Amino acid sequence: MALNTPQITPTKKITVRAIGEELPRGDYQRCPQCDMLFSLPEINSHQSAYCPRCQAKIRDGRDWSLTRLAAMAFTMLLLMPFAWGEPLLHIWLLGIRIDANVMQGIWQMTKQGDAITGSMVFFCVIGAPLILVTSIAYLWFGNRLGMNLRPVLLMLERLKEWVMLDIYLVGIGVASIKVQDYAHIQAGVGLFSFVALVILTTVTLSHLNVEELWERFYPQRPATRRDEKLRVCLGCHFTGYPDQRGRCPRCHIPLRLRRRHSLQKCWAALLASIVLLLPANLLPISIIYLNGGRQEDTILSGIMSLASSNIAVAGIVFIASILVPFTKVIVMFTLLLSIHFKCQQGLRTRILLLRMVTWIGRWSMLDLFVISLTMSLINRDQILAFTMGPAAFYFGAAVILTILAVEWLDSRLLWDAHESGNARFDD
């Protein structure tokens, strides 16, 4: 018995066209964080690309023209004298008006014999932002004059995390709450300039795509075929072959399989920071003279006294001054041990922890910024005066060393310790 099946006739004509040209192939790229070699397709503007294995951002879609970056830099340069030299806060102490600005706080630190601690604050609040705007201006002028731009481009990517104007702005709020127990506070004209400078700096850093600047100024022929001998440069993120001198053909720094002496430098910085954190938390970090009496505060006791007036601000200072430094030390110690013992479990967790400490590390400088600003506000000789204690130097040095330890660690070593050939990683 035959089955009668109805015929289905399409209502619209289906047209099949042959592909007349070869589909576009992607360029081969190595991930600078996990060293995976993959094919990167062509990316349009405002599109980002991520590593298929570790999800690290390979290409950032946010990109401004150099002219727009230069305009932002010149605007920031105009704001800087007002943000640093004009009063941020006014207080009335014992019937006398006192003005506080950024430069005055750094000068008070240096004047009291601790120039190293003052230079830490100076670099993060004044030096690094000033280098940022002058570097962008150098790129703008240098591109037109045919100057060598490689050193500036190499420095810009590392400079971003040292620009800490946003953290200093939080420190202004913390210092205001600490001082309000002794005097009446009012915002100064410099505060508005400083807030504007923070906003412009944040926007500029978020749109400063150094890798795209490398592509514009020093374009290189990408690798179009897969080759395990391809290496990625950690300076400019170019994937290719080393030249005859073993250097990256684009930025001219040595092109090595792994960062040289990464573990040794990381261990040295980490152990030194552990040693410095002990006096930083045991010795007094601030000293207040009130009517001839002397009151010393460690980091913890200062947080407890701050909690009596504002528990939320005390929580912020606790996280930045105690929780973050010790968390960074514990995480980095764990990561280094996992590399030495070739741990194969929990790779995803370790990668996330490394990215976390990379982002939060700079916030530990908050305590030094609060001390710097408070020193310029309260300084009335023996009637009422505020000065920093010996722990300030140890704390600042420990924070900087932990930042350097994270920067010096080559994250690809975590993958080397893991089993080879993993296309995915999980716990």
Rank of each mutant, 00 (worst) to 15 (best):
D166N: 15
Q33W: 09
F217A: 15
R144A: 13
L154C: 03
S372C: 13
I287P: 00
G173R: 01
A398G: 10
C31W: 00
G95E: 01
R424C: 07
E157Q: 12
G240H: 11
F369D: 07
V317A: 04
A137T: 05
L3W: 07
M147K: 05
Y138G: 06
R59T: 06
W408M: 02
Q104L: 05
I14C: 11
S376I: 10
C266K: 02
M36P: 00
S39E: 05
M147F: 06
R150F: 04
A175P: 01
L409Y: 08
L377D: 00
N291H: 13
V324A: 08
V406E: 04
F141M: 11
T9C: 06
R226V: 14
S309R: 03
G173T: 06
S193P: 04
I299N: 08
V406Q: 10
I167H: 02
S420D: 08
S301H: 06
I287Q: 08
S338Y: 15
E22F: 05
M120R: 01
F217H: 14
F425N: 14
I322G: 12
L234W: 14
L78D: 03
V195K: 02
V406S: 04
N310C: 05
G246M: 13
W107T: 13
L153T: 14
L401T: 12
W162D: 01
I311R: 07
L282Y: 11
T402P: 06
R350W: 13
L368Y: 03
L149M: 09
E161T: 12
A18Y: 06
I8M: 08
V163T: 09
R150Q: 04
A175F: 01
F217W: 09
S286R: 00
I91Y: 01
L77H: 05
R424E: 09
L230Q: 14
W107Y: 10
F369K: 05
S364T: 08
L255Y: 14
G105Y: 01
V170Y: 13
D410N: 00
I98F: 02
H46E: 06
K328I: 00
I14A: 09
V329C: 12
I131D: 01
A137S: 06
P284H: 10
R231W: 07
L205N: 12
L139D: 01
Y138Q: 02
G235C: 07
I136E: 04
L347F: 12
L270Q: 11
V406T: 06
S305F: 09
P222F: 14
V329D: 04
I403Q: 02
V275K: 06
T298V: 13
T239V: 12
V102F: 10
L191I: 07
L66E: 12
L373M: 08
Q7D: 07
A280R: 00
H184Y: 15
A223E: 14
I322A: 11
R144F: 08
F326M: 06
S309M: 09
S305H: 12
N310V: 05
L23S: 07
M147I: 04
R412T: 01
P32R: 10
F82A: 04
M304H: 12
C124A: 09
W415G: 10
R59M: 04
A70T: 12
L276D: 05
F395D: 01
R247Y: 13
F194D: 11
C233S: 05
M72C: 06
G361I: 01
M365Y: 03
G95P: 01
A385M: 04
L263M: 14
H261R: 09
L208F: 09
L276S: 14
L414V: 10
R25G: 08
L336W: 08
L306E: 00
A196Q: 09
Q47V: 05
G292C: 03
L3Y: 05
I14P: 08
L165W: 05
R424A: 07
I285T: 03
F238D: 13
V16I: 05
D181L: 01
N101A: 03
A18V: 07
